[in-house]
Amino acid sequence: MLETKGRPNRLGLWGWLGGGRWGMERYLYTLHRLTGLGLLAYFLLHIVVTSARAFSPERWKAAMDSVSGLPFEVGEYLVFLAFAFHAANGIRLGIIELGFGVGKPIEPVYPYRTSVDVQRPLAIGALVVAAAIAILGTLSMWGE
């Protein structure tokens, strides 16, 4: 169990990042948050940069030139990968939230069984979908 040092619910960053032995889904949760924060940071900048198209072609070209080059291309690629994972995993979370794919409630009788085992195919399916989207984007962005 994580050490709370006498302050319940104050696990800090380790509370987010440390999945312990809670299984694959716990790490998908961490990755969902990290990719979400990354996508949000990119999106806020994206709003500002792409607003240049409201002014003139010259302003648009200047804005696009200011975010060109290999570091930005790599950054944009990482954003695409984050999108692929966050979207596929988000759909999985939505399906589970609506009560699908979690199995039927059972009595808590030893040896205990967990609903996570029933959900595992969904998690694997989400990762396969994310990988397929990532491959499409990789081929499109770097395949030339």
Partner: peptide, 25 residues
């Protein structure tokens, strides 16, 4: 929040298809 996620999945999917997968499709 969930409903917005569904809207994003649809329109961001279209946006990504336009901006990042156009080289392939």
């Amino acid at each position: 929040h969930l409903a917005a996620g569904a809207v994003i999945a649809l329109f961001l999917g279209l946006h990504m298809l336009t901006m990042h997968v156009d080289g392939l499709i």
